[in-house]
Write a protein that binds this DNA or RNA. Sequence first.
DNA 1: ATAAATGTTAAGAA
DNA 2: GTTCTTAACATTTA
Length: 264
Amino acid sequence: MPELAEVEYYRKQWDEGLGAKIVAVELHARKRVFRGSNTRALREQLIGSRFTESTARGKQMLFRFSGANWLGLHLGMSGTLRTERADFTSGKHDHLVLRQTKTALIFRDPRLFGRVRFHRGEAAPAWWSTAPEIASDDFSGRYVADFLKRHSRAPIKAVLLLQNGFPGVGNWMADEILWRARIAPETRAAALSLPQLSALRRATRFVSREGMRIIGNDFSDPPPSWLIHQRWKTGGVCPRHKRPLARATIGGRTTTWCEKCQPK
DNA sequence: ATAAATGTTAAGAA
DNA sequence: GTTCTTAACATTTA
């Protein structure tokens, strides 16, 4: 489920536990989501520490705890975060539960493509991203042009999915962006004209900002004019003129677009 | 039952 | 050395 906008929503779910101490940690240590992580240190250090802050960059989240402890979370394809009352009993896919006296903070992920990382230190961990966020002013025309140049032969759809250039963009956001910018998804990055490049940047900023505002706050639906409502159903149509959408695998992912709005 | 799902990454090819 | 493509990962749902 989670791309930039959904990640923002899930990150906020744990806000309820801000300021409170962790009194117990439950986790399924052999599950794939803990690959490469020291679960023993995670458990030992987090118990007794206070949850102080959370941030998100792209699809990555970083939760800060007192005592120089940091928890990195990635939701993968099916991860969610939520809170329950303290008497909550964890289910099969609830791989990490941080218990506080009043609240349980839960990370659930049926498909296990998500990831939990633990870090100790005064500074944020080395794996914490430094790429410009796509909704910020640092995401400049120059930056976009440079990034596309480095991936000039790949289809633009595949380039949009690269997290080191477009952090937070996933499959639905990429299709939404290309549809708004009126660019065919299989176009090679190098083939974009200057106006297309600027339309691409504009659409990226629009979709990320509006997505964060609408979905990121309470998971409400974007307006019916958005492509997102059409892209998963068979028989989906272009919101602009109701023409049937095209569908193909591009950049390894199912891609939906309108051949009229986004000509070759 | 078979395919596909809003993601990442290792491995091999170009 | 870098960039590009594909397969694999684990589980649920249509």
